[in-house]
Design a protein around this nucleic acid. Structure first.
Lengths: 168, 168
DNA sequence: GCAGCGTGGTTCAGTGAATGAACCGGGACG
DNA sequence: CGTCCCGGTTCATTCACTGAACCACGCTGC
């Protein structure tokens, strides 16, 4: 976002956060990382983002400590994983206001299959579900593609646990 | 954000949400509205946003039903108020990772003064606190300004309830 | 050895959006 | 009638995003 770090915004952690993850594409990159995407090319094709933009974003995110580079690509750090409540809140807002048929992706506690409420609590066992214990799967608002998509998309549209790397 | 609404992102409510509130400045405008800002000029001076950009943003947000125009300016609709969990999550992330001295703004249940936890629950009475019942006040990470700021900033830096209009 | 290919980028010209400063017009006030 | 406040608009400049082409490296098969 490159906000000019103004005096006025010194006391706003929202502005500070948006300087890091407020730029176009950034939260979508983070979302794909939660889905298990790790490789440069997979981010590029999944998001349809220009490769130059992706380079810029990933570099900035690595510098900020949201991602780290390792042998098989870019993975979320704990700081990046801490963005999950934000991603979840925005997804929920989008579901409620733009998906009349119901949520496009449902979140469940992988251990017992209980749905997660707005606070991220399992309706089955009542516990706060950690990110790696969260299963994501197509919900009632999900619209299946007619033409079968690429392998990465196929993997992302199967029920799977967050952060589980996509391996083909 | 004006994402090109691609086939690939049809099934992502996060992308849909970011089309509405993902543009630069948008969430900061929403934040100021939670703080009670309602007038065009106040948004402009508080955020330091170019007036032309502010016009564009507010127009888009009114069209999307996030704000509504009324006699005393722009106020959040229920759809806009529903963005509070997102704003709170991002603020919390910014506080944790960029404000070592502690949160810049603390959130309390106005009725009993209990602090809110990460899920928005009052630690005093255990209830989920609604937005208008939330009090926001400077926290330990807050850095007071030396030169006394404008009246609107002064009002925003006092403990106050969310959505309470700023009147001078 | 080398031709092909997958992967992870970089380069660069074109374009559209953000910026900021100046300007405008209506209403309230005196 | 003049002035100020308020909520914008206009416009030239600058900036960042875009998209397509290109590049470098390592691996595989022949």
């Amino acid at each position: 976002m490159a906000l000019p770090s103004t005096y006025a915004d010194r006391n706003c952690s929202l502005a500070r956060a948006l300087e890091v993850v407020g730029e176009r594409w950034t939260l979508l990159i983070v979302r794909d990382a939660f889905y298990g995407v790790r490789r440069f090319g997979d981010f590029a094709t999944q998001l349809g983002i220009p490769r130059a933009s992706l380079t810029t974003r990933l570099k900035a995110l690595v510098e900020e400590g949201v991602f780290e580079r390792d042998v098989d690509g870019y993975t979320l750090t704990p700081k990046g994983i801490a963005l999950w409540p934000t991603v979840r809140a925005l997804m929920a807002w989008g579901d409620v206001h733009y998906s009349p048929a119901g949520v496009k992706r449902a979140l469940r506690h992988d251990a017992d299959g209980g749905l997660l409420d707005a606070q991220g609590r399992c309706e089955q066992c009542g516990s706060l579900v950690e990110v790696p214990e969260t299963r994501i799967e197509p919900g009632p608002g999900f619209q299946p593609t007619v033409t079968d998509p690429d392998l990465v998309s196929q993997a992302m549209n199967q029920p799977r646990r967050l952060l589980d790397p996509i391996k083909l």
